[in-house]
């Protein structure tokens, strides 16, 4: 079965869009999506880690012994996560303060490890890079959408800009933890409605 770069890229955008279809890596999905900005920031950080780790794992897949592959994946992923953390601290300090603990936690994000194990370890570099990019963009879009909905309802702003004027009473439930579950559940429900044919 020949796999094309385009199809590996696009599957991450809809058919296997990470949080909604694969339902993987929900910890940051629920934790950081209080605003759209946080969601997109987290998504971009994860995308970078996904692409880099996919490329490296795929390039080294014939060298890495099967028995210690998970340890190798973790070293590779942790390295890139720390690179992202330092870069974010240096160039986007306010975002870093907002995301805080969630950046180091990308190391244990199931999507990153999952793609390394399920895809990059078995496919060539180009396909793995396309897979990482697709999955990353899908993840970013999902987090952005979830963050956007929660931000609009929960605080009445969109990407930091006020929407409804001062008379708006924010529905703060949406920016708290239970709101994340409710919102994610509803979005999953909508996705399934479109998908189940």
């Amino acid at each position: 079965m020949a796999k094309s770069i385009a199809s590996e890229f696009t599957k991450g955008l809809w058919n296997e869009i990470p949080p909604f279809r694969l339902v993987l890596g929900l910890c940051p999905v629920l934790g950081v999506t209080t605003t759209m900005q946080n969601g997109v920031g987290m998504g971009l950080a994860t995308t970078f880690v996904l692409i880099c780790s996919n490329i490296l794992v795929s390039a080294l897949r014939n060298l890495i012994p099967g028995k210690v592959r998970i340890a190798c994946f973790i070293i590779i992923i942790a390295t890139f996560v720390t690179v992202v953390e330092l870069a974010m601290q240096a160039y986007a300090y306010q975002l870093f303060q907002q995301l805080g603990m969630f950046i180091p936690l990308i190391v244990v994000n199931c999507i990153v490890l999952g793609r390394a194990e399920a895809f990059a370890f078995k496919n060539n570099v180009m396909l793995s890079a396309a897979d990482g990019l697709g999955m990353g963009i899908g993840f970013t879009l999902s987090l952005g959408a979830l963050g956007g909905v929660r931000e609009i309802i929960g605080t009445g702003t969109f990407y930091g800009a006020s929407l409804f004027g001062p008379s708006f009473q924010p529905f703060t439930f949406m920016v708290q933890a239970p709101g994340a579950f409710v919102c994610l559940g509803l979005m999953l429900c909508i996705m399934n409605m479109f998908g189940s044919k």
Binding site: L60, L63, I64, P65, V68, A71, C72, I75, I76, A78, T79, T82, V83, L86, A87, Q89, A90
Partner: peptide
């Protein structure tokens, strides 16, 4: 393999750390 990989990642991190 594990040693080489760790050494590589250590080197990369040190470089990024110094750079930022």
């Amino acid at each position: 393999v594990l040693t080489l990989l760790s050494a590589f990642s250590g080197g990369l991190l040190a470089a990024v750390r110094v750079g930022t």
